[in-house]
Design a protein around this nucleic acid. Structure first.
Lengths: 141, 141
DNA sequence: TTAGATATGATAACAATTATCAATTTCAAT
DNA sequence: ATTGAAATTGATAATTGTTATCATATCTAA
């Protein structure tokens, strides 16, 4: 009979260990590979991508398409009620910083769009693009 | 002395002609290449990418990073007050359809985020991800 | 322990985009 | 119209992020 759960491999657990140690961090697959290798962990790029996909399917990790071009970012959520499940993100197109935006007023808009426009927004997957305060004041100088 | 404006080339004008003929359409570079070739126009892929970049810099065309992976989409805006400059977009992660969302209530949020969170959102560059009505009712069956 | 399912990792394949560069085209000044 | 410098083109190579392949290694229930 087919197995229901995957195997517990060294690499998968080390990946999870990394994420648990950095719960708030958004990281790319490439950076992840570097960090793990730096820790002396033997892991290949293919395994990183495969495991990220599986962890995403299990709801432990979330994928963000942050850049217009460039690579995706991943973040640990630790399950259904993960850190960034309910709020939006802001990404500054100038400096590239990603901000978390947890704001009741904004969170209402998901309800509004569902009710008025028949579209069920996934806040955690949505990123607002724009210019942050720092970059704005810099460009004024 | 160096020139200020670029040269008026056949290809660039044909590209613009296409966009002017399809003002509301979001199209990928690859699809653009196909369409132009279908019209008997001699143009290379590299030129498409280069000209799109230039047209974007001139503010005549706008780039959207629509897919998590996959290719970017482009749309004619015709200058500063282009069609999609002030409203948001919704992208269904199920069927891939892109919806325009012009709604006063939503447009307020840019003001809110600027005032309360010090971040100047660019609505035209921001895409909400979620599930559209059709796909939602389908998945209920 | 052992068998069979599953995971790994090196590498190839892939897709979208960008860089290279010789040949061509544009356009302002003659 | 001719010229010539600057800009553009297009075929192709290179790059980047990601996925597929497949032989080998690992896991785990029996």
């Amino acid at each position: 009979m087919p197995r229901k759960t995957g195997y517990q491999t060294k690499q998968k657990m080390q990946l999870l260990a990394f994420f648990e140690a950095h719960p708030d961090r958004h990281i790319t697959a490439a950076a992840l590979l570097l960090e793990l290798k730096r820790q002396g962990i033997s892991i290949g790029a293919a395994t990183i991508y495969r495991q990220l996909e599986k962890l995403e399917a299990e709801g432990l990790v979330r994928r963000y398409a942050l850049d217009d071009r460039g690579s995706a970012c991943w973040q640990y959520t630790g399950g259904q009620d993960g850190v960034c499940r309910h709020h939006f993100h802001l990404k500054c197109t100038e400096c590239g910083t990603l901000f978390h935006l947890d704001c009741g007023h904004l969170n209402e808009i998901a309800g509004h769009v569902a009710a008025e426009h028949g579209f069920r927004i996934d806040p955690a997957r949505t990123v607002f693009y724009g210019i942050c305060e720092q970059c704005r004041s810099k460009s004024k100088e």
